[in-house]
Amino acid sequence: MEVGRQLIIPVVNLNSATAVLAKNRALQFFAYATGGQMNAPTLLSLGVAPYMTAKIIWSIVSMVDQEATRHLTERTQNLIQRGLTLLFAIAQAIQMAVMISKTMKPIKLLTEFDSTIILITVLVAGAMLVVHLTDLNIERGIGGAVLLILPTVIQNLPNMLENGVNTSDHFIFTVRSSIFLVVATLLFLVVTLFIYRGERRIEVQRTGIINTYGKSYLPIRVLPGGAMPFMFSMSIFVLPTYLRHESIDGGAFANYLVNTLFSYHTLSGILTYCVVVCLLGYGFGYMNFQPVETAKTLKESGDYIFDVAPGRDTERYLTSRLMRMIFVGNCFLVLVTAVPLIIGLYKPGYGNLSFFFSGLFILITILDNIFDQVNALYLKGQYELV
């Protein structure tokens, strides 16, 4: 992944393309969270974003129309997901090509249009190569798809802190600010690890299993959506601003709304950003736990929750418990998101802590997943016969 992110596509003027891409800080932050490289056009500039987006869209479709998707073979589902990944990769490649269209350089026997086609083709090919690497790691490695995001997040954490979404947002390192940063980071790590591992355990009666060693339970995490709200919140929040910069002008009133409601430098904009994070928290949390499918699985296996009827009642019970946990988790996400941004309104540069903590949270979830898998592999052969 790291080698592929350094292979420059030689159909553009590198200095000019880098200068153009550097202006879109929000797009770069999104690339940091999805294993991409938006500082320059490279083979793996798109990262894992097309793959992750396709997985999310397919999960939503599967939840909406479970009867239709259940009858599809695994091969057919994989082909559909690959097709969606290809479409999203083409869309993102075209977006990047449009952004740096004025930096294309004609090569011998090739026109600027030919160079643009080559750029889009290489970007899409790189995205599909990432899909292949992801499949290999899921099958034979550890960490799953998110492992490919790890190098980018680690490498760009300092950049998230030092340079904000706007070019004027810089965190200045002084003795006082450095001490504040260390204390805030340590506090954030302790609280995040505690909350991320927190879960509500619902006891389940297993009718087909006699277990004398402990009770069976169904866990619902405080943060069932994991780091996904942070990964996608920025790209959604800055979309209106990006469209305006691309000469899609809706008039003075529309520009006023964009400047007010979609800015990190106004209270209403911070509130809008928090709303986006919360909505993504509910969406990803519901999608990851899937109470409807869980209730159906319990009913089909003959298992049940004590004092709750199988079927619809179990579904409503699980949904209500899930919504409560997501609400608690969203309160934490809003706290992490809003407090640094509000401080940044009065102390320039401190708003970058919001993006720094978001990247740190993504890093924690990835490492926690890797540690759990390594620990499971280690303990797999440590049990003695009883």
Rank of each mutant, 00 (worst) to 15 (best):
V12Q: 02
A19Y: 00
V20C: 06
R25N: 12
A31Q: 04
A33Q: 13
Q37W: 09
A40Q: 12
A40D: 04
S45I: 05
A49F: 03
Y51S: 03
A54G: 04
I56A: 15
W58S: 12
I60N: 05
T73N: 05
T73L: 04
G83Q: 02
L86W: 04
A89C: 06
A93R: 10
I100F: 10
K105A: 10
P106F: 09
L109D: 14
I120S: 01
V122Y: 00
A127V: 08
L129E: 09
T134P: 10
L136W: 13
N137L: 09
R140C: 07
V146I: 14
P151F: 11
M160V: 08
G164H: 07
I172E: 11
T174N: 03
V175W: 01
R176D: 00
R176T: 00
I179M: 11
F180P: 02
V183K: 04
T185I: 00
L193W: 13
F194N: 07
Y196L: 13
E199C: 06
N211S: 05
T212L: 11
Y213S: 06
P219F: 00
M228K: 07
F232K: 02
L243P: 13
I248T: 04
N255K: 10
N259D: 15
I270K: 08
T272Y: 01
C274D: 13
V275D: 06
C278R: 04
L279S: 10
G283R: 11
Q290P: 03
Q290Y: 08
E293P: 07
S301Y: 06
E315I: 03
Y317I: 01
T319K: 09
R321S: 15
L322N: 01
R324H: 09
G344F: 07
N369L: 11
Q373H: 12
K380G: 10
L385F: 12
L385Q: 13
